[in-house]
Amino acid sequence: MTQLILFNVMNGLIIGAFYALMAIGLSLIMSLSDVINFAHGGFLAVGAYLAYSLAPYIGFWGGLLVAPVLTAILGLIVEKFLISRVYGRDPLYSLLLTFGLAFIFEDGTRYIWGAQSLPYQVPGWLMSPLSSSFFFLTGYRMLMIVLIVAVVAGLFVIMTRTRLGLRIRAGTLDLETVSILGVNVRILRNLNFGIGIYLAGLAGVLAAGQLGLQPTIGDSLIMPSFIAIIIGGLGSLTGTLLGGLLIGVAQGITTVFFPSASEAVMYVMMALVLLVRPQGLLGEEGRF
């Protein structure tokens, strides 16, 4: 029983880390650009398929390194030529635009790579369990956790130690004032979008090794990511991270005791948070 619970908590942590990666990117974009990026799951799928296509040439590790960067570059281009055009307009415009983009990404990947699920090759030694009693602890799962922790820590450093990060944080509060201080806010929003999409691309590559490849790979992750933002508190990076992990673990535990509720549990959590602390667990005060 203990092992079963541990197994599901571990599963929950990993899926929660995916939610968190997605949610942090969504939250960065939402805070600075006031755009709810429904195409985020589409970018995740692009990252996954790019890694798949690159792997024969540059190997698994090369794909892991390069695919998220290429996805981020695609993000920079999409922001510059499409998304930046709807800034400052009614939110309906950006909703429609990113919703349309999500469809384009999904059908685009289906057209290029096919509708059927593809296997994504992870080096064999990463797939074997670390010990026989904890069969669910594979090297790949450890790798995912280490990578996600490292990337989130790196993001924290960027946000608190670099001028780019300071300007993004200042801009989430008051972009107008950032612009009168001489900061090119078009470039700032562009780079911020790129950072968010990088995280989505990385989540995609890692998810491909865990869940396999299909054009709708991002769909199951996007709703929990929005909920992670609401639970953690919009604008708080730490809160969003916490929100993602909480949802994942809650899902894992619910799977053990009440499997049919594992989908519903995050909505219950969201409802509770909205009732008790509408600004989210680390909203406002935790705003960073």
Binding site: R163, L166, R169, A170, L173, E176, T177, V178, V183, F288
Partner: peptide, 16 residues
Amino acid sequence: KIFANLTVEENLKVPV
């Protein structure tokens, strides 16, 4: 219009 979420020193690092 100071940035309430940043420290004094961080506020001073925002301008180009």
